[in-house]
């Protein structure tokens, strides 16, 4: 086979490989991030519940105060207020009632994830620093549906450093990295 013909094959072969790689990487990212949908539509901002009633974020995302990460609420937390058998208490949507009756946890999708190499303490920021959750997270007080997935507007290190500088907090690498 002449060299020029061979080169055509090599070039197209390489192009195909590159294209496949790009598609798979992109496809993986798409699958990772495209679905911001949650298994149960939980309306943070609904006029009848939660935000309107001034239920604090930490009441359900108990890890803000009590844990190492904010966390997603377990059924035990919902059950503190909602009881499917009571008629006079807070309204219990069918999906929640079904979950409470069966005891199967609702498989919430984790929306925000701090990388493992970052030490981020919600307690320091939300409780001690008294920062509003909306400083870093989408403002759920205005959202009827789950917040958009993080790839739209991630919290980058530059944002952390800018705020730390402004508030004269430590910018020592070891302050946040481990």
């Amino acid at each position: 086979m002449k060299f020029l013909e061979l080169r055509k094959y090599i070039t197209s072969g390489v192009a195909v490989v590159l294209l496949l790689a790009a598609v798979s990487v992109l496809g993986w990212r798409v699958v990772q991030y495209v679905s911001g949908r949650q298994p149960v539509n939980f309306p943070h901002a609904s006029a009848l519940c939660h935000v309107a009633l001034h239920v604090p974020c930490a009441a359900c995302h108990t890890g803000i105060v009590g844990g190492t990460h904010a966390g997603l609420p377990k059924l035990a937390v919902c059950a503190l207020c909602h009881d499917p058998d009571r008629k006079d208490g807070p309204k219990c949507p069918p999906a929640l009632a079904a979950a409470l009756k069966s005891g199967t946890e609702i498989p919430w999708k984790q929306h925000s994830r701090a990388p493992k190499h970052v030490y981020f303490s919600h307690y320091r920021h939300a409780v001690l620093g008294a920062l509003n959750c909306a400083e870093c997270h989408p403002d759920v007080t205005r959202l009827e549906s789950p917040p958009p997935p993080p790839w739209r507007n991630p919290v980058r290190m530059a944002k952390c450093i800018a705020c730390h500088r402004a508030k004269h907090a430590s910018t020592d690498c070891l302050g946040c990295h481990r």
């Binding site: 844990g67 377990k74 035990a76 946890e105």
Partner: peptide
């Protein structure tokens, strides 16, 4: 698992 989950909530 049930008990473990409740422990976390009960911490607070």
């Amino acid at each position: 698992l049930k008990v473990g989950g409740i422990i976390t909530a009960a911490l607070a």
